[in-house]
Every structure is written in C-alpha cells, then in structure tokens.
Design a protein around this nucleic acid. Sequence first.
DNA 1: AATTGTAATTGCAACGTTGCATCACATGTG
DNA 2: CACATGTGATGCAACGTTGCAATTACAATT
Lengths: 344, 344
Amino acid sequence: MSSKTTTNNMASGKRRVTLKTIAEMTGLSLSTVSLSLRGGTTLKQETRDKVNEAAKALGYVPDRAGVRLRTGKTNVIALVLDGSEDSIDFARSMIQGIGHAIQGTRYHLTVIPEFERHLSTDTINYILSNRTADGVIITHTGPRDPRVQMMIDADFPFVSHGRTEFYTPHAYHDFHSEDFAALAVRRLAGKGCRDIMLVIGDDSTTNYHNIVTSFRKEAARAGIEARVLEGTVKLSPAEMRSVGMELAAAGDRPDGIVCDSEMRTIALVGGLTEGGVTLGREVQLIYKQTSGILPTLFPQMDSIREDVFAAGGELTRLLIRRIDGVAAQDLQTLAEPQPHWRSG
Amino acid sequence: MSSKTTTNNMASGKRRVTLKTIAEMTGLSLSTVSLSLRGGTTLKQETRDKVNEAAKALGYVPDRAGVRLRTGKTNVIALVLDGSEDSIDFARSMIQGIGHAIQGTRYHLTVIPEFERHLSTDTINYILSNRTADGVIITHTGPRDPRVQMMIDADFPFVSHGRTEFYTPHAYHDFHSEDFAALAVRRLAGKGCRDIMLVIGDDSTTNYHNIVTSFRKEAARAGIEARVLEGTVKLSPAEMRSVGMELAAAGDRPDGIVCDSEMRTIALVGGLTEGGVTLGREVQLIYKQTSGILPTLFPQMDSIREDVFAAGGELTRLLIRRIDGVAAQDLQTLAEPQPHWRSG
DNA sequence: AATTGTAATTGCAACGTTGCATCACATGTG
DNA sequence: CACATGTGATGCAACGTTGCAATTACAATT
C-alpha cells in the first residue's frame, strides 16, 4: 500500500513493531493508535477494533524504555535480598513467589543482593536515586529499620517482610511470630515439658523481639520454666553444633527446645544427637520450617511452617497496590503459622 | 545566577539531575556535556574537568530509560532461574555471585523464575521479543537444550551453566562433572569399595551424561563393579528415603555410593541410616556439595564441592564479555571440583 | 587580507511513548 | 445564515540520551 518507506532499516531483517508500525498499517495517526491501545473511550468502536487487530497481528508490545522515559514508570519491582542463610532456600521460595504473582502484569523483578549485614541504607539509596524500580520489597526487617525510615521519608512505595515500630504506617506482610512462639510453647507444655529453652538468632529483627516476648509470656501462662539462648547468630554451624553438645551434657538441660532457624536446628540437632540425647524422648524440639528439607531430614520432629512462597506472592500484591496509590495502612497482613505435629 | 528557570517543576523540591542540568551549570552545550562524560577525546582538558566536577557535585547518574531508548542497550542481564531443588541454596548462591560480579558495572540483574520443567522456550522467547535484557544466563543446560538453540539462532548473547552438544560454539561455564565422577570413584576404590553405585537424578541435563560416562569409565579402570540408579529425579524425598531403606536391606547392597544431589543425599542417608547401615563403615558415600549445610549435617562424610557463588561470578564475567562482542568460543570455562575428604 | 587548517564545540534529529491542545467535520440551535 | 455543540481523530512537544553533521574559534600559512 505505502509507496515510500520512511526510515526503516530493513537491513536487519524485520523491524521492531512500534506504534508507528501500527499507525502505518491501519492508516491512522500515531496518537490515535496510542490512545486506542490505552483504552481511549472517545474513539469509535470500529477504530479501536482495527487497532487491536493490527496490534495483535503484529505482536505489538510497548517498548519499556519509551514508556519509562515518558511516564517515569519503570514497571520494575526490586527485591533487596538479605544475605543471611538462616532459612534454607528462603531466596528461591521468595523469588518464585514474587515471580508467580508477577505473571501477567507488566512488572519485571530485579534482585539486588545485600552482602554486608543489612544495617546499611546504601542499597535503598541507590534504588531511590537511580529510580531503579517503582517499588521495593525488603526482608528481615528491624524494629527501627533505617531502610524503612528512608523510604517513608522519600515517600517511596515499598513493602517489608516484617513489621517495625515506626509510628507512620507502612505496607508489610509478616509471619505471625507471636503465634508461632505461643503455639510452640503450648505444644511443648502439652507434651509435659517443664523447662524449655528458646534458641534464637538475629536480634536485629523485629521478629526476634516478638518471639522472645511471646515465648516468655506463654511459658509463664503455662507455668513452666523458660530460658532464652541469645546471640547465636554469630555462631558458625560448627560452633552451634558444640552448643548442642554442651546442652546435652549440661546438668540443667532443658526438656524442650524451640528453634527459630533451620540452619541452627540442623546444627543443634547434630550436636544434641552426638551428645547422646534422643530427640523426642529426653528432649522435645520444635523448629520453624520454611524449606521442606528439614521434614525430610527429621520426619519425626514437630515443626511450624512459614510459607515463604506464599509470602512472596502476598508481598508482591501488596506492593503493586501500594504503587497504585492504596494507603499504606490498608496494606498490612499477617501469615498464620502452620503447625505440623508429628505424633498425636 | 540564572534569571529565568526553563521548564523546571520546582514544585516537588529538587529536580532530577540530567545532562541539561550540567550544561546549564557549566555554560556548555548539552552535546558537549554528553560527549565529555563519555570520554570524548577531542575536548579540551579544561572542559572535561569542568564537566566531571559538576557531574560529581550534582551527583549525576545517566538516566537508564534515556540511554536505553537511544542506544537500545538495556544494561540488564537476565537470570532464568530453574525451579529444581536439587542443590540447596543454589539460587541464593548463584544470585549472590552474579550480584557480586555486577558491582561497579552499569548492569542490573533481573531474575525470571521458571515454573514448569525447563524444556520450554517461552521465557527465552519473551526475553528476546521484549528486549528485556542485553544477555541471559541459563542453568541446568541440556545436551540439545532448545533454549540454547533459540538464542544461537537469534544471535543473542547468553552464557549457560552447563555444556551442550551443539556444533556452533557458545559461551558457557560448567562444573567439571567428569572429574567429579572420576575423583569420587577413585576415592571409593581407594577406600576398598568393590561394588559402587551412582545415584543420579535429572537425565535431561548434559551433566547427567558426563557423570554417568565418567563414572562407568573410571570404575572399569579401577576394576570394580559399577551400577547406576537412574530416574530418581521424579522421586519425592519420602520416596527417596525408602529407596535408601530398600538399599540397606538389599542382599546385593553396594559398598560405595556417589550421589549428585544434596536433596537426594539427605533423603538417601536418612533411609540408609534408618535401615541400619552405618555410613562410613558398611557403606561409603560421597556427594556433590554446594550449600554448606550438608557438611554441618554430616561432618564426617566425604564430599566434592561445586562453588556456585564463584560460578555465578564467572558466568557474569563471561556474559559481559560476550555482550561486548568477544567470540563465543573464547568464553568457555570449567570449574574444577574441590574434594573434601574427611579422614586420611 | 584572504585562505586554509586544525581544534574545539554545538545543533539537530532520532529512539518510542504519552497527554494536552487543537482541528475537521457533521449536526444541532437561535 | 451565523454560530454553538459534539464527536472523532490528530499535531505537537516533551521525557534524557547519543552520534553525526555542521559550526565556530583561532592560529598558521599564503
């Protein structure tokens, strides 16, 4: 139809399909095509059909750079990936969850790994100044997390896996750690434990405080002894293992243990076993489970599960709504712990 | 200084720093600033200093959308994340490795999780047609991987974690599986094993074939019996566990086992142990280790390590050089397995 | 004084998109 | 008939960047 090709570089085979291509094909103007594709209601139905048809036939997909330059929207969400190894396969599950929730949307996921312990705002700062993404997901949130503070101040959309103590509300999705601790304590008490111990690591997170508090409260309510073994976050697996051995040998050995991390559970169980303790007999142990590996390894042991895949999905949905302007206080959800009791 | 503000939207506090900002500040033209920042050699040294100074003072960072629109370069590399769970923490290590190698470059990382088994070219197709990234990293490569074929055909920069059997060379970084198998067999033979078994999963990967072949060859050379337990990829951990129990009870029980996956190792060891076998006594076992968890769990057991973090870094460096135009056949490297023998 | 040569700088168009302001045209109203 | 109204469609500028063609500045040569 068209007699003169404009500035097509036909050299490289097929040219990229843009609004212009559709315009040329339909005989409409570029503006009309653009308007139509975005659902302009002032257009004739016939026109809109024609455009949609051509777009589909040509396999048109809007150029991200063009949109981004014009609108400022990156259509990207960023995951700041904590370097901690406490939960096995946490990263994969989280990413899969986000990826699943992202399907069919215009969003892409970029992952920014964190190397130093997450006290730093460097990464967030980078994201904000580079306009890397429209929104951010952070994990392992602390009570007064400086990253949260920074994004609140900048009025930048984000959602945290974990709560904080800030007055200003922000979007979050969190594991209900209080219920986790309470469930675990009640279970141990129900099994006849009188002297239980909480083995817990990262005291920089809000969950740490939630768990400790709830653990103590629920033990008091059940009328049993409660101890907390803190500062295990700095211990290597080998060191954690010897902690287990020492515990096994100790005179005041607890008869029930709650462990908040899979890595520490593995090491601890290794040490206890080597120290001659039979788990489930002399000592009861309940751990927080996220990966599916531990149940394979310790099929007889009680656990309470956090579904990280689901968390990733929920975080994503919250974030997208936040980006779309929903108020932060309407975007706060908790995930209930899922107990997996093994015997009676 | 400037009397009339141009089109600044001073409403929202501070405006974005662009080339224009620097141009206004230095009194130079926009083109000059752009040229200077990209190291134009025809500029006076004085001018270049002035521009650099202003850029630093203002904290200028080039707008990705602008660059991308103009040049077609996305400055993004994409990782196609396989959904398999064989290697524990594979995803995290890989991403950390990539992230580390990316530091200081202009590249960002986007991760695209794969859900169905990786036979599909949908994801690659999406990346190619959307110009999502400048290059792609894929893992768990198969001998005639259709994804590789597709990217070769499209002449699109990529690097695979794993080799293929295609004639056309492509960039890869791979674990030296042949050496892994040979090392393991020799170790077992050296420990006195006469009847060894390879427990191996995903037969869709190239590594599968490499390992099986090398395992058989090396066993023949050592003059010992060699069996291969195939098709374990479809088994759940629980099923794998019972395989271990059956093996423990079998009359023709092997006296040495090589296992290629951490997940299967855990389940297998669980089953064998429950079946009454003492690892390291009646049966020797060597596994491929990637995560650091297994050594904690089985501190006395031999393993051969693949450093996935390092692999991620190497893949990234190869890919970037590929994007920069280096020939594919010059971008092929192998990682040597690192044996961790525990006793003598 | 005019010309040439070289070094340094700049204008312009384009990448693909969006949204506002405008326009063409047919239909209605006084 | 002049004018307003409404319906559809379009022109234009801008987002930030780059690379080429063109321009200027200025010294050196004729």
